[in-house]
Design a protein around this nucleic acid. Sequence first.
DNA 1: CCCAATTAGTTGACACGGGGATTATTTCGC
DNA 2: GCGAAATAATCCCCGTGTCAACTAATTGGG
Lengths: 172, 172
Amino acid sequence: MEHFDDPRLTAMGLLSEAFSGVEAKLAPALSEEGLSVVDFDALIRLARSPGRRLRMSDLAAQTSLSTSGITRVVDRLERSGLVERVACATDRRTSYAAITGEGVERLARVVPRHLDDIDRWFTGLLSPEQLDVFLAALRKIRDAVRPCATAGAAGAGRTEHDGPAESSGDAH
Amino acid sequence: MEHFDDPRLTAMGLLSEAFSGVEAKLAPALSEEGLSVVDFDALIRLARSPGRRLRMSDLAAQTSLSTSGITRVVDRLERSGLVERVACATDRRTSYAAITGEGVERLARVVPRHLDDIDRWFTGLLSPEQLDVFLAALRKIRDAVRPCATAGAAGAGRTEHDGPAESSGDAH
DNA sequence: CCCAATTAGTTGACACGGGGATTATTTCGC
DNA sequence: GCGAAATAATCCCCGTGTCAACTAATTGGG
C-alpha cells in the first residue's frame, strides 16, 4: 500500500550509488599520492585555470565547497607545498590560490592512473553512443542544477564552445 | 602542453557536479521535515525492506556508510523515534534497525515533495528515451562498482527482475 | 568440547566541512 | 568625499562520518 518504490526514487538511488561507488574506486590511487578527492579536484581546477590560479571564492564555487571549506583545503595544500596564496594587486580583500610547480608535478604523477581508473569504472563501461547520451544528460542536469559553477573560468575572450575548461564550467 | 583537460576528467567532473547539485536541490525539502539526506536514505531503505527492518551491517552496506557510521545514524533516528533497535532472536550479536510507525508517517509526509523535486531537477529534464539510456548506463556503472550493495534485500523467493526493491539492489 | 578465528556492533579520537560571526576592504548612493 | 551596504576571506563551534581499538557472541578445527 505504500508508494515507497517510485521509479524516481530508484533513479535517484541509482545516481547516488553509481557516483559514490565510482568515487570510492578513484580515491585509493589519489590517496597513494597523498591526495584526497577534494584535494585533487581543487588542484586540477587550479591547473586548468588561466594563470594556474583562482580567487578563493571562485575555487569554492567550482568545487562546491563553502568559502570556509576552501580556506581549509587551501591551508592544507599550502602546508604541503602544492598551492600558494598570492595577494591580489588590485583588491586587497581577495587572494588567489595558485598551484605550484610541485603541485603540477604531483598532478602529473597521479593523473595517468586516475584516467585509467575513470575509464575502468565509468567511461569505459559504456559504448561510445551510450556515453554520448549519458554525458549530454549529465550536462543538461548540471546546467539546471548549478547555474553558477563557472566562477573564475570566464573572463575576456572566452567563447561559447566545449573547450578544455568544460568541466569547470561553460560560459552561460 | 599539459594534458589536464582529458575528456575523462570532464566526464567525471560532470558526474560529480550533476550529482552533488541534484542532492543540494533535494536537501531543503527533507530538511524541512527534520531529515538529512542520509536519514532519508536510511529510512526509505528500511521501509522497503522485508519486515521493514534490516541488520545494522546490511543497512550500512546499502547506504555505503561504515558500520560505525550507521550506528550513529540509527542512534539519531532512534532518539527521534523514527527507528528502533530490535534484538535478533537467533544471534545475540546482531540487532535490527526497524522503522517505526512514526518513521513511516514522516516518510509519507516528505516523499511527495521529494519526488517532485527529483522530477524537477533530474528525471524530468530528460526525454523518456534519454532517461532510459541514462538509467541503463547508471545501472551498468553501479553494478560494476558496487557488487555487494544488495545486502539484506535478497533472501528466499527473490527473483531476478526489476521490481520494487530495485534501487536497494538486484539479486546478483 | 574448547580455544582460536571470525563476525556484529559500539566507542573514542580525529579529520573534515558547514554556518554564522568577525575583520578588512571596496563600492555605491547621495 | 563619506557613511552604509556589500564583498572576500578567515575563524570558532559544532555535527557528521571514518578508522582503529574494543566487547560480545558465534563458529569451526583439532
